[in-house]
Design a protein around this nucleic acid. Structure first.
Lengths: 408, 408
DNA sequence: CACAATACTTAATAAAGTTACGAAAGGGGA
DNA sequence: TCCCCTTTCGTAACTTTATTAAGTATTGTG
């Protein structure tokens, strides 16, 4: 069937959680036969599964007595783990096997401190792989910080984890698991994860604060993408007057102020002491409130975020990561500063909220997107997944097949 | 035929200028019959015209002697004016009638000083309309500054032309010309115009400096769009430390520094005199170079632009408007500052260029887009099942086959 | 004037979607 | 229990759109 409709159906089912063929058809506005055929195909492939368990009454409390033939409920397969998820964090690497129908909160099965070299890292992976159930996976999903060329599968630039730039991460992983590898920029995974849990959020900017600072954008329910493998790099916008050196090679990046390390450094500088731990800083801030150094930092952050909102035309900001650990006064200050700088706030409302990170959900969404129902078969290694006829995506204006249907 | 292919063909022809059916088919990667049928249809509607004049030899100098049957060349209709173009500027209103195949540079047939009220404005329009050839136009294309809800056809917010917010500009225009009205945000028109003249530019951020400051983004050859009627509002990003009041109601907007008025004001402040004219300031700057106040302003501007580049993942900046009037040292300073703040410059190249404004070309592009080959997917429930779109249950797609107001 | 090369058209075919209709699977009332 | 109602789901026939293949038209070249 058409890739587009197949994608749409799968995405919708991902959001609905559980639905019958008829539900899907209605909610997508496509005909029942079409939805039925797609569902059939995906069942065949093991992407979906049919559940006949009595529908929990609580799931549809307001629904009156159901007339007619009850639908056969479908959901994304939750019985067979299809993916290996890998979070390559600056300080920690986490691993888990995941089904397509992912559980909601992150729950890593294995984790270890990220070493400084590719060899050691692969070694640790190997050890863990041997302890995983021997299965043939559809793919390995890797969340990485920094700038990723996700088509080519290369880390181009990673200010906080430089060794990943020099090696072919995909190949390293494939030495451990012989399966297609999908690299996903950390913040993109987070945005997809947030979207998975909040299907009604169709336009938002997700900003993540942690060891680095990055953002990711969803417009009209679609992750903003670009041919250039760079996107949402809020952390490396310069702040006038700031001269701290950044891992990216420049001076004055926002990240040097609002990353966890940057905040600790500022705190220490303001109080003439050594850098405290994160917990101690939180404690002290809870007492002292938003001190001038912090206010300055937050204002700089807000300007960058407001700038992004003004340029992008988005009115919802989702903040994840370390900033939500801090006393509420901090987020309050930031929020009001963002509103002050955002032009939409002059005649509309800006929503700013904090949310936990949902990396695994995002990784699975990315994996489904790239491996299960790819728009274009840009992954030559794809095996055991739906056969999708060849078609180039952006063949540089030469032999683009813009026609939507057909081909086989 | 499919809207998508029809759009693609028209856009391509717009870029190529003149092409045969076979050229179009080849360049779009679609089959000749398809291209032929679409071309036929568009000829019928009067969108295209066939030219049989001898092809200028200079057009394809390197091309060796052409064998075979020569193609029948097509281009966008240039004989019948189909649109009225209207530039509602802060200080001046310009008017012209335009064909689909637009001439390249702006060439307004009528112009008058924009009055302070809707009544006076309509009155002037009426006077001009009576002097235009009586024809039935396909639409009136209006370039407006400020924030425009182009679907609803309302000006939501116009810091430098407040009276347009309170009136229904579309209705005003329709009282003069009984035709569909398309409102286009000024910078969007400029971006479309630039794209028309540089078809190879597929990703860029166009920043326009004038009485206001705004930007517009093209990604993958597509004007960035958003459900929120706001986009590219670079001018209203706050600059820390700046306290000048802005027409938008806030303080410290970038626009208060780099608009023509802002620059003049800063110049006057730096030299303790009255505000000079634009020409005098240029003259003096040519002698004195980039003075500290100007450097500060440019740095602030560069940070905002670099921020946009980092977030959007774009590596090309097109600057139009007043800033290119200033001595070259000014653009040089700005360019190098943008590069310094842009993360892509760490491992790639940032292109920054200045360009003249091409408003009419952009307006026509927008008009074609909205009136001649509409997507008709412009409904709030745009859920994206485009291929062979499942007709919505709510049959509000009455204008599905609208195409072009049939006359002739 | 045949022949090669290119442009365009027509006809048959394929893919993906649609509507239409009928069988399956319950619930509720006689 | 039987019958009717409602809804789900599958199959068949039709529609739209684009493709491939084959045929016709129009030029330059030997």
């Amino acid at each position: 069937m058409g890739r587009l409709n197949r994608r749409a159906l799968l995405t919708r089912l991902q959001h609905l959680g559980v639905a019958s063929r008829a539900d899907l058809a209605k909610s997508l506005g496509m005909s029942q036969p079409t939805a039925g055929k797609i569902a059939e195909e995906l069942l065949e492939l093991g992407v979906l599964e049919e559940i006949d368990g009595a529908e929990p009454a609580s799931a549809s409390p307001r629904r009156r007595v159901k007339l007619g033939r009850p639908g056969r409920l479908l959901r994304l397969n939750r019985t067979v783990p299809r993916f290996v998820a890998l979070q390559l964090g600056v300080s920690e690497t986490c691993i888990s096997t995941l089904c397509l129908g992912v559980s909601f909160s992150d729950n890593w099965q294995h984790r270890f401190k990220t070493p400084d070299s590719a060899e050691l890292w692969t070694h640790r992976l190997q050890a863990i792989a041997s302890r995983l159930p021997p299965a043939s996976y559809w793919g390995v999903l890797v969340s990485v910080p920094g700038i990723v060329d996700d088509l080519a599968g290369r880390v181009l630039f990673s200010p906080n984890l430089h060794w990943t730039e020099k090696v072919d991460v995909c190949r390293l992983v494939q030495e451990v698991w012989a399966a297609p590898v999908v690299l996903v920029q950390e913040e993109r995974a987070l945005a997809l994860g947030y979207q998975h849990l909040h299907p009604q959020a169709r336009d938002f900017l997700l900003v993540d604060f942690g060891e680095g600072v990055g953002a990711s954008l969803v417009v009209s329910g679609q992750l903003y993408d670009n041919l250039l493998p760079i996107c949402g790099e809020l952390g490396h916008v310069p702040v006038l007057g700031n001269e701290r050196p950044c891992g990216c090679g420049a001076r004055g990046c926002l990240e040097t102020l609002v990353s966890t390390r940057g905040l600790l450094q500022s705190f220490a500088a303001a109080h003439g002491g050594l850098a405290p731990t994160w917990e101690i800083m939180i404690e002290k801030l809870a007492i002292r409130g938003v001190e001038p150094w912090l206010a300055t930092t937050l204002d700089a952050t807000s300007v960058v975020i407001a700038g992004a909102l003004n340029v992008l035309g988005v009115r919802t900001v989702v903040v994840t990561g370390s900033l939500s650990d801090l006393p509420t006064a901090v987020m309050d200050h930031l929020s009001s500063a963002i509103r002050k700088g955002s032009i939409y706030a002059r005649f509309g409302q800006i929503d700013i909220e904090t949310a936990p990170r949902h990396r695994t959900a995002g990784l699975v969404a990315a994996g489904i997107d790239r491996l299960v129902v790819p728009m274009s078969n840009r992954d030559p290694a794809a095996r055991g997944v739906p056969p999708s006829p060849a078609r180039d995506r952006h063949p540089d204006h030469s032999r683009a097949k813009l026609s939507v249907p057909t081909n086989s």
